[in-house]
Computed example of a mutant assay.
Amino acid sequence: MKEVIRFFDCFAGIGGFYYGVQQIKSNKYEFRHVAYCEIDKSAQKFYDVACSSEGTQKIQDVKDIKTKKNPNGIMVSDFDILFAGFPCQSFSNVGYRKGFDDPRGQLFFYILDMLDYYKPKYFVLENVQKIHTIQNGSLLDEMKKALCEIGNGYILHTWNLLASDYGLPQKRNRIFFCGIRKDLTEPKGISEPPVVDLKTAKYPTTWHLLEKGAVDPKHYIPQGSRRTILTKPSNWEGDVNIDNAIARPLTATMAKWHRANQDNYFSEAYIAGTDPYVRPSVNLDTEPIRRITPLEGFRLQGFPDKYAEIAKNLKLAYSTQYKLIGNALPVNLAQAVIEHFLNSYL
């Protein structure tokens, strides 16, 4: 008989962890969705539709959850594993990497409070890779020490992974913290999840997932913004290349028309081409060039096409859709990490 693993999806977003576990097929265990927590109203609406959350406990704010420090809070339904992609703006380049000096970074302490009070068997946490550079790595060391010592103690595995190594054509780095209670097992030397050959993936490159037909004209770079977006200032490092076979990391502010060194833009010549690995010669002044569409953004994060339809039915503005997409956890990473971690111990 399979072990039922009840999961609490905290800082749930649009369901990167949720959809990741739906892809896992095991003879030893199966998942049951018991609760989720998400404060963003648009993400809540999306999650309610996309993640079949009817009958699942819904909590808006992690600060309202019952813990030793908050004895009058909301008691979470019994759960065996905590998933939490806790807000990363304070740890990212865009957030200037303030860490625990930023209130958003301090939400990590609420995770510790939940682990201390509920003592789940397992946890899988996720954040931006840049967290390891804050305070020369000392912040990450503090976090790891706290996770190992909280409650009765956890055996911790930490992996720094890249989405393009797990079936998604996107250079998106994420760090994962996977823990199992010390009283359940002996420590094991577990390497990171095995890499997936991108050439065998559903979308080996961005070209494979780009919409080849007509798209909303709003996705094309406004003529007055072209020079700013597509030209590299002389004092900048990096490149402003468009038509990248492997996408730059998606951002939550894609709707703002960032410079091409930060976001992803594609020419009609590339989209209509036949070789995803060759950038065509493009006249940057006249060639129609566009950003990715929401459908393409969902695909780059590993979500099914129905997600774009859900967003459309909810009448979400493009800026809202891009925010939800950019803040999401890549599904393929969630699946690879959870499956590898649990299979190593169960």
Rank of each mutant, 00 (worst) to 15 (best):
I190T: 05
Q60K: 12
R299I: 07
V278L: 10
A252P: 01
A328C: 10
E149I: 02
K171T: 14
V124T: 09
L168W: 10
I155S: 12
S52C: 11
A50D: 01
S191F: 07
G302K: 12
L209H: 06
K66T: 07
Q44R: 11
L115Y: 00
Q335M: 14
D183Y: 01
S281A: 13
I24R: 05
L112P: 10
L210E: 04
Y18A: 04
Y47E: 03
P204I: 08
S225K: 14
N283M: 04
I310T: 02
S191V: 09
L210G: 05
F11R: 01
K144L: 12
I325Q: 03
H157D: 13
V337D: 09
M1L: 08
F100W: 01
D78S: 15
G13M: 02
P120I: 10
W207H: 14
D239G: 04
N127K: 03
M114P: 06
T274C: 05
C10L: 08
E142I: 13
F303E: 07
A272H: 13
S77Y: 15
D64N: 12
A35S: 14
L168R: 03
V195I: 15
Y110E: 09
R104V: 06
I150Y: 05
Q57F: 08
V196A: 09
W257E: 12
F7C: 01
N283G: 03
G153D: 12
D102A: 06
S267A: 03
F176L: 14
